[in-house]
Amino acid sequence: MLWNEPNNMSHWDALLDPEWAIYADMVKLAGEAICAENGGLVRVLGGISPIDPEFIRNMDRRGVLAAVDAVAVHGFPLDWNHWQIHEWPERIAAVAEVTSHPIWVSEVGVSTFGAEEVQEFGLRRTAELLLGKAPRLHWYSLYDLPRAWPATTRHREAEGSSYYRHFYMGLLREDGTPKRALRHFTDYTPELGICQWFHFEDPRLDEAVAWLKKLGVRKLRTGLSWADSFRPNALVWFDHMMRALASFDVTVTYCFTPDSCGLRPDHTSPPRQIEQYAEFCAQMTRRYA
């Protein structure tokens, strides 16, 4: 997957790239680089949030859809979106009207910020609405985000409770204990996958693998961070993580700009040289696919 939520300011600075021209050229170049390394891989346009068919039209006009094999959407109607959960089929249909590409749902989830019963309902209703309707469906996520870690979002405390919902999206609490919805998850695997981001040298990795196997998960989405690749011993960590995940059908998301490579020093910034992102994608594909 080429980036994460490119139409969301939390992940791509559209003020620096207002028409997504840089993003489009970057994805085309990276898509070609990945294909050159392994032509059998499915290349997925970064999952969009909000679900905006016009963004897909823009990518089509810029020739991006010729460089990918599928598109993806993210939806959180019980937490952030301004639409209701029962509207999922219409949201998928709206994207299907503007592209013939398969449409993945690479992130869908419900927080327990208000009550665990809300997540329990949301899991069941999401499965009813989407299983069998999308080639890939990834529940976000296995673990709550540790409260000591920052959420990857532009929202901050002053903007109200929506920011805090990021920390309660897991089926497991921060301490690894199960929430109510976890007991139902095996009703929907292996068709229902999980999206779990692992931070650099994440201490939860081995425990997460054990839980994923216990839950019958086969399809896993995670990320390899271009920014993390600049850290000392980055390849040691990447190798360790990818070995641990080798038994799963893994969708790897290539994302996050290194500070030194951006138009401004931030992971959301468009890179100054899109060729550097394409080379990172090629290197990771060569190493792990």
Rank of each mutant, 00 (worst) to 15 (best):
P190G: 09
A70S: 09
Y288E: 03
I274L: 08
Q273T: 02
V108D: 08
L145G: 10
L130R: 12
L220G: 10
G132R: 09
S260K: 04
P150H: 07
A94H: 07
A151V: 00
D79L: 02
P89W: 02
F248T: 09
W104Y: 11
A227H: 01
C261S: 07
G114F: 04
L145W: 01
A210Q: 14
L215N: 06
L215A: 05
H240M: 07
N81E: 05
V209M: 10
A227K: 03
A158H: 12
S229F: 00
A134Y: 12
W104D: 12
L29I: 03
E32V: 02
H11T: 03
D228Y: 01
F55Y: 12
R43K: 12
D187S: 11
T268I: 01
V44D: 15
D187E: 13
A208G: 11
R136A: 03
A24D: 14
T186W: 13
D69R: 05
L78F: 06
E19N: 11
V71K: 10
V44I: 07
M241F: 12
F200I: 02
E275F: 14
I194L: 09
L212S: 09
T112W: 04
E32Q: 15
V44L: 08
R180T: 01
L123T: 08
P271N: 09
H11L: 04
L29G: 04
E107C: 06
D206A: 13
R136C: 04
P271E: 00
G47V: 00
L2I: 04
P135I: 02
R180M: 12
P232F: 00
W80H: 10
E207F: 02
P53E: 04
P265N: 07
L245T: 08
L16Y: 03
Y163W: 12
L130N: 06
T152L: 02
K214Y: 04
A134T: 06
F76G: 14
V252T: 04
V71D: 12
E120I: 00
